[in-house]
Design a protein around this nucleic acid. Sequence first.
DNA 1: AATGAATGAGCATTCATTCAT
DNA 2: CATGAATGAATGCTCATTCAT
Lengths: 215, 215, 215, 215
Amino acid sequence: MTGASVPSSPKWRRRADARPAEIVKAAYAVFAEKGFAAARLDDIAKRAGISKGALYLYFETKQDIFEAVVKDAVAPNIGAIESFALGFPGPFEQLIRMMIPQVADLANQSDMGKVIKMVIGESGNFPEIARIWHADVIAKGIGLLTSVIARAQERGEVRPGDPRQHALSIASPLLVAVIFRETFVPVGAKPFDILCLMQQHLDNLLPGLLTSPRT
Amino acid sequence: MTGASVPSSPKWRRRADARPAEIVKAAYAVFAEKGFAAARLDDIAKRAGISKGALYLYFETKQDIFEAVVKDAVAPNIGAIESFALGFPGPFEQLIRMMIPQVADLANQSDMGKVIKMVIGESGNFPEIARIWHADVIAKGIGLLTSVIARAQERGEVRPGDPRQHALSIASPLLVAVIFRETFVPVGAKPFDILCLMQQHLDNLLPGLLTSPRT
Amino acid sequence: MTGASVPSSPKWRRRADARPAEIVKAAYAVFAEKGFAAARLDDIAKRAGISKGALYLYFETKQDIFEAVVKDAVAPNIGAIESFALGFPGPFEQLIRMMIPQVADLANQSDMGKVIKMVIGESGNFPEIARIWHADVIAKGIGLLTSVIARAQERGEVRPGDPRQHALSIASPLLVAVIFRETFVPVGAKPFDILCLMQQHLDNLLPGLLTSPRT
Amino acid sequence: MTGASVPSSPKWRRRADARPAEIVKAAYAVFAEKGFAAARLDDIAKRAGISKGALYLYFETKQDIFEAVVKDAVAPNIGAIESFALGFPGPFEQLIRMMIPQVADLANQSDMGKVIKMVIGESGNFPEIARIWHADVIAKGIGLLTSVIARAQERGEVRPGDPRQHALSIASPLLVAVIFRETFVPVGAKPFDILCLMQQHLDNLLPGLLTSPRT
DNA sequence: AATGAATGAGCATTCATTCAT
DNA sequence: CATGAATGAATGCTCATTCAT
């Protein structure tokens, strides 16, 4: 009763146990490959190095695991870009040009591609997940871009037009390239170099999107 | 695909030739809603107004039905647009401006939206289907646009740059809007007006993509 | 109404229609290969060159067809041998020696081998068939041999002993060779030459079975 | 194989090692009664006192269970008889006279009777099983007898002639009696007393098969 | 916390049988 | 007579979930 035998940190009910994260990681791989329905808990457990029964110590149902996988991929990276973009003092063109490599890198490195494939494929069966992803990723991403554009329009840097549509104008090739990579490249399609693609895209787009600085 | 599949005849209609199409139609609806694995043959049969066993008079396996659904969404309209585009005598800008409403219409009316969602979601489990869709739709569509662009570049109408990336520059918002509509609009997202979106997109894009005729 | 348009023969209700016989023949082949349960009516119909539905014009159920096949193989050949054996005036040894080639020939030529395999295999599911075959073939065959032996014993030609067991002593190698041929030869076993086997068997057996003519 | 398979324990017994044997035992009973195709996994599971799904913890397919049943009936006793026979120092007649009760006992007690009925009936559908049984039981059994005979011929104890045919001469009544018991006795046929039959058979056969020691 | 044997509902597929034509 | 489309019950197999240990 000296008090040392229980964790003193009150913040975490359950100590920083690695298990749930390992399970989510394993589940991510299996769900990404098979989709929700075709994924087998057996495989997830095996990949996580635990027994099938142990999954139920951390999650209530298969669906819970799936949701954890999908939600886990949501949080991390939007925040950084968001604060960077909203705090950026320079002109719109410069911001966009700087953001592109970051975002392309994110698209290349993160698991978001596989996750978005899952979200698209299972949205019919898991509206909740579609809702979460829409709220936390899609709407937030598009919203960020939209508000950046809207502010640039206010400053006269970007020509008039629905800023949300402008946002799609800018970002779509990236999204398509990611989906393309996850869906068709594995069956032999030639991939796109995302950074290169986006730079060429901006070269195409910006002349029309930006207001000519001197007229 | 309106879902009004209640048979009006006694209970038993003799028209062996119409059956496969009816089945594919019913299966389309079920697969689109549930995905491949979660779709039940019972539901498909019920929706087609026949017994489960009767499905097997026309298809060998569930997968065959799925493939028929996916292939069925392929054929119809690519050909028409293709011959129109390749035979078009006028300048590139005019061609693109004329094609957009056609393609937007196709995107709005056909079943392609739900099917592409399925293709993305099930590509991991059915590489064959991903392959078919890549070959018959994606590669063909992008290829068409790519070759139109390449020819315009030869005529000096379009600025240099990888024409395949140019094609993605042009078409991506359409694809993203379709996927967005199938995935997030059902859970409350505000849809894009595809025609409007694409026109604004072209207004953004063409100034930079086309070589300014007089400078 | 001249009377010529209907068959004049009153003996056959249904004209000598070849159909049922053709069906039985086709069914024989399929049942012999697959057994009762694994045989498909589709295959039988196809082999008989008619539609599956037409089978039901001649037979009520699959089981009826099976029984027809098995019963059909019963009748033909026992009778001839029976009357020959029972009417044979000479000594037992001569009778047996003369019968062996006939019976071996029957075993080699007829379908009885395949049918007996079916009877053995399906006897659990079709006791009726086992009963018929026992009554019409097995009991009759063994009974014939038994009574021939019994008469020979009465004449002092065959040594004492249960004549039914004597019958099995004589006939068993033939039966085993037939079953062996149907069961193991198709998977590579070396077949027995039935006639040769039986002659050697009689050479072994008769010295002990017959009473030595001079003692 | 007594059929008293009602579980006496609560409902759920932990003995993963005993399970396969229990399943095979239950499956033996069901297969023996119905044949392979007509046997239902439900019945096997019920008889084994477990759920249908549990079968698949121990066997991959129905066919695997069937093969386990058939192989299980192979192993036990051939080996013992084999070593006994090959090591026997005395004369052929004595060996045979001693073996008969053993073998008759085996035929009366073991499951081999029902299994051989199954092998015969299903050989068309499971060539592999026919092959196994031929290799492990039939060929081995006949081969044993054949080599014993051949050695006796070398010693001049048995008269010339194909020793494999001699083997069939000797053993056939046993086999026929077993098949007869499984097939026709259940429908009312009078069974053979196998030991008695075989002794009478040997009394018939040996005088002709052995070379008369003194003439 | 962890295991893994066991469950049982669920589903794709087959096929004998029926029946409108 | 004949067809062959249609049925629907039957069954092998799967897998998320439970629970005694």
